[in-house]
Design a protein around this nucleic acid. Structure first.
Lengths: 239, 239
DNA sequence: TTTGCAAATTGATACGGTCCAATTTCTTCA
DNA sequence: TGAAGAAATTGGACCGTATCAATTTGCAAA
């Protein structure tokens, strides 16, 4: 990680920011940073861009580079989940116990819509995997996923009862690094109410997503219906 | 816009991609592009990074640069709203008629929570602005916003009945370029049901956000409750 | 003291080069 | 024919430089 110059600089600067070594909320100018770190100014720019993209700093041409006051005020919100792809890992990191209950697992022909999403042809088959996810024994999400059989021909019930992403990374040696997500709210249906312990007036949050391997291959299309109290999608938006 | 070299290259490449001038889903290598466009390789890299960040292409070291198959398949979903900050403008661009009905407009002391969000001190005052937004005469959103009076001391009822962001950009000459958003689902309350024409079983989508001026000053904290059929938040996530 | 312009500061854009690492393609040899 | 290794291809990282544009600062004139 830190064997890259610009990463070394950006993580060091981030640490200094956290340690409040710039009390006037202003970073040294790029040319000075270039000298003190003994790196080129291009690398400094690249390092600063990382921090700027994270919303930690912002730059004003002609004026200087400044620390986003909110970052110091409330660092916790900057740990946003916008970049968590897998569910299993993001829960484990919070010290919770994730469980999966397999609701159904079968192979079906890909529908027209799934063909388009997963870049498949007529007659291609996909796994249809419906799982209930729990979290300290409380059910919070019904997940229906479709995966082309030709990408993961070896998928078994045992694998599907655990993390599919981890299986792909460990076994096929490809990783899931991108996804396209849609987030919306929806009234709960009977299945939601039964499996997620919801009253009829209580809704679900829906996340629809297509997940890609790092080589760009669409890997899975997934529909996730979450207990409304367990979905909070945080994101930092810049124009 | 196009007077910047890297922007010229990236928008030209994007056009060529849309026009299907790379039928094998592969772009020329960086060195070749550098020659054909008569620009440096650094500029080509920068142009390609723009497209890669947009999810249009992806690069494989040692192999080449390729077009995301999904981009061609379904270009519409790539018009994601993830980067639209203001409501007024993003609706206008869709040819809809946006309207605002002012529900209440007053000055109140900032609560502890708002003090923290907006970086205020004890005793500071904020505007509390509650508005109903309509869209071709159909109400779709109840918005409650808090703005420090010291940032916009001249705010009047007339302004608040239109776009606040546009007022700020035109008058104070600062622009709102960043926001931190949380998106979640919630059962509808009585006010929601009445104003948005919802049944008790129908939920709202909630967007909570803090908006910042381009100098990093927190400008507004806003709570938006949307008719569930009108909230769909699309986003492209990379690790 | 205030106003207005010149100079210094500072980030943005762009160029071109070197070396490296992952991947593919070609060649050689068993 | 097929496997191993060499060579070419291709994107990644980094450096140093030149020029430009937005902003701030300082100084001089009113």
């Amino acid at each position: 990680m830190a064997d890259l110059v610009y990463r070394r600089v950006s993580s060091d600067l981030k640490q200094k920011i956290v340690d409040n070594e710039f009390p006037n909320k202003r970073l040294p100018d790029e040319r000075t940073l270039s000298e003190t770190y003994h790196v080129s100014r291009s690398s400094v720019k690249r390092a600063l861009k990382v921090l700027a993209d994270d919303g930690i700093i912002f730059k004003k041409r002609g004026s200087g580079t400044f620390i986003n006051p909110l970052y110091m005020k409330n660092k916790t919100i900057f740990h946003y989940e916008g970049s968590n792809l897998g569910i299993t890992d993001s829960m484990k990191s919070q010290g919770k116990v994730p469980k999966i209950k397999l609701l159904s697992f079968k192979v079906v022909p890909a529908s027209k819509e799934i063909q388009q999403d997963l870049f498949l042809a007529d007659g291609d088959f996909v796994y249809e995997i419906q799982r209930l996810r729990l979290f300290d024994d409380k059910p919070f999400m019904i997940e229906t996923g479709y995966i082309p059989i030709k990408i993961a021909p070896e998928l078994t019930q045992e694998i599907v009862e655990q993390s599919i992403f981890n299986y792909v990374e460990d076994t096929i040696n490809k990783s899931v690094t991108r996804s396209f997500l849609s987030i919306l709210a929806s009234p709960s249906n009977e299945q939601d109410q039964e499996l997620l312990n919801l009253k009829p007036t209580e809704p679900v949050g829906v996340m629809e997503g297509i997940f890609f391997l790092d080589d760009g291959t669409p890997f899975e299309v997934s529909n996730m219906r979450l207990h409304y109290q367990y979905l909070r999608y945080n994101t930092f938006v810049m124009v």
